[in-house]
């Protein structure tokens, strides 16, 4: 019985991911898209968890754990890139430069 419940849950999650994907494509600003991508990643993690319990293989949970970490780091990296147009300099240096009067670009 639980297999069917999990299957329905996985299908619902796929539907929510499709809605999120449409926001990712139509989103007027960059930040809409980043937000949609982040939320899409969270749903992917949940889908992986549900799927791995549905088929009874615990490997999926490890992948979901990794995916959650990478999703977070990717969001931060995208935001950092679009703010500073560079990934080379450490964030701490960036805020220091702004504090002593350099410009934000």
């Amino acid at each position: 019985m639980m297999v069917w419940v999990n299957l329905i849950a996985a299908l619902c999650m796929a539907g929510a991911m499709a809605l999120m994907l449409s926001r990712l494509f139509i989103g007027p600003t960059l930040y809409d898209r980043v937000l949609a991508a982040n939320s899409f990643g969270t749903k992917t993690v949940l889908l992986l968890l549900i799927f791995s319990l549905m088929v009874g293989r615990s490997d999926g949970v490890d992948i979901a754990l990794l995916y959650a970490l990478i999703n977070f780091i990717a969001t931060i990296a995208i935001l950092k890139f679009f703010r500073y147009r560079s990934l080379e300099i450490a964030l701490a240096q960036m805020s220091l430069r702004r504090a002593i009067g350099g410009d934000d670009e």
Binding site: L35, N38, L49, V61, L65, A68, T75, I76
Partner: peptide
């Protein structure tokens, strides 16, 4: 226990990511 760890991770990272996006915007 692994599932609990995933839940804890989501609980920690999702508000941080939301704040990062909001602050950047």
């Amino acid at each position: 226990a692994k599932l609990l760890l995933v839940g804890f991770l989501l609980f920690l990272t999702s508000p941080t990511a939301t704040h990062a996006v909001a602050n950047a915007a």
